[in-house]
Computed example of a mutant assay.
Amino acid sequence: MSVRIDEKLFRAADGGLVRAIENLAFEAPKHGFTVLIGPSGCGKTTTLRIILGLDADYRGEVRLPEREGRVAVVFQEPRLLPWRDVEANVRLALPHELRSADLDALFATLGLETMRSRFPGELSLGLARRAALARAFATEPSLLLLDEPFVSLDEMTASRLRALLVSVWSARPTTALMVTHNLREAVELADRIVFLTARPGRLRGVVDLDRPRAARDAVWREATLRAIDEAYPGIL
C-alpha cells in the first residue's frame, strides 16, 4: 500500500483553515506490519480515515494492496453490538460467501472458545478487544487498519493481546497498518515504523526492523529503543 497526502486542511471553529497533514508519503509493504507513530494531533487517525475512504477532502493519492480486497478496522473501542453474542458480532461482519466459515481456529488462537455465546456486557475490556480482533480477521482482509487497539489497557493485558495479535496475524498474513503512541509496542510488533512530526504531520523518518519477532528479546528491544531515541529525539 502506498500513501501520499500532499495536503489535508480542516476548517477551524473560527472559520480559519488548519493544516493537519502536509507532504506525507510512505509505503506499507504487502503482508508486512507497519506502525504509524507520532505526537497527539499529528494526523495519524486522519490518515487512517483517508485510507478508508471516509475523508476524500485532501490532495494526494492512496493505493491499496488489492483494488477489490476487503479492508478491516480495529478501533480504540471494540464497538460490539450489546444485543448480540460474541459469535454473532464476529459473523455479522462477514461477506455472504464467508457467513458459514469455520471460525474454530480463529476463536481458539484468540482464547475465545468459551466466550462465543457471551454478550459484550459480560466481557472484560481485554476480552472485548479480542472479539474485535476476531471480527476483523474473520473477514480475511487484504488490509488491516488498527487505531490504537490496546490503549487504556494495563501493560500485562496489553502485552498478552499484542502476542495474540501477532499469532493470529502470522497465521492469516495481511497488510497491516497500526497507529500507536507507544514506541515499545511498535518495536515489539512492527516490520516498519513510520514517524510523523507534530502538526502539520509530515514524514519524519522510517525505520525497518528485520529481526524475527521471536528473537526480539528484552536486550534487543532496549538497544533498539535507545538507537531510535538517538536518531529521533523525543520519540521515546
Score class of each variant (00 low, 15 high):
A108E: 13
L81R: 11
T197F: 06
A231S: 08
A25H: 03
L17F: 14
V3Q: 00
Q76E: 10
V74Y: 06
E77D: 14
G38I: 02
G126H: 04
G126P: 09
L133C: 07
E185A: 00
E77F: 09
A214E: 15
L196R: 04
S142Q: 14
G69H: 13
F10N: 10
T47W: 03
E68D: 15
L125R: 11
A105P: 01
L64Q: 13
L165V: 13
P39V: 11
F75C: 02
G41T: 14
A190T: 10
V71C: 10
G234T: 14
F10V: 09
I37G: 12
R118P: 08
K30M: 06
E155G: 11
E185N: 00
E185F: 00
L112R: 09
L48S: 00
D6N: 09
F75Q: 01
Y232W: 02
E185Q: 00
L196F: 05
E140R: 12
A72K: 10
L196V: 03
L127S: 12
E222C: 11
L203P: 09
L36N: 01
C42H: 05
L183G: 06
F33P: 06
A101V: 12
L94W: 11
R221K: 11
G126R: 03
E155Q: 11
D229N: 14
V206W: 02
E97I: 02
T114C: 06
L143A: 12
F26M: 03
R99W: 10
L146Y: 12
R172E: 09
K8T: 00
S159C: 07
R221H: 03
T180G: 06
A176I: 07
L110Y: 13
Q76F: 07
L54C: 01
V35G: 06
A214G: 15
G53N: 00
A227K: 12
G60K: 05
R135F: 06
L164Y: 14
L123M: 13
Y58S: 04
A176F: 02
E155W: 07
A20L: 02
L98Q: 05
D210P: 08
A218D: 14
P39K: 05
L24T: 04
L143K: 03
E27F: 07
R70H: 11
L164D: 15
D104V: 03
L133W: 02
Y232M: 06
D154W: 07
E77G: 07
A138G: 08
G121S: 10
G60Q: 11
N182A: 11
R91T: 10
V18N: 13
D229F: 05
L125W: 09
E87P: 03
F75K: 08
R221S: 05
P39W: 08
R84P: 02
E185I: 00
R130V: 06
P82H: 14
S117D: 15
L236H: 14
V3M: 01
A132G: 03
L177W: 01
A28N: 02
R4P: 07
D14I: 08
T174S: 14
G69A: 12
F119N: 01
V3C: 01
K8G: 02
A171R: 15
T139Q: 12
A105H: 07
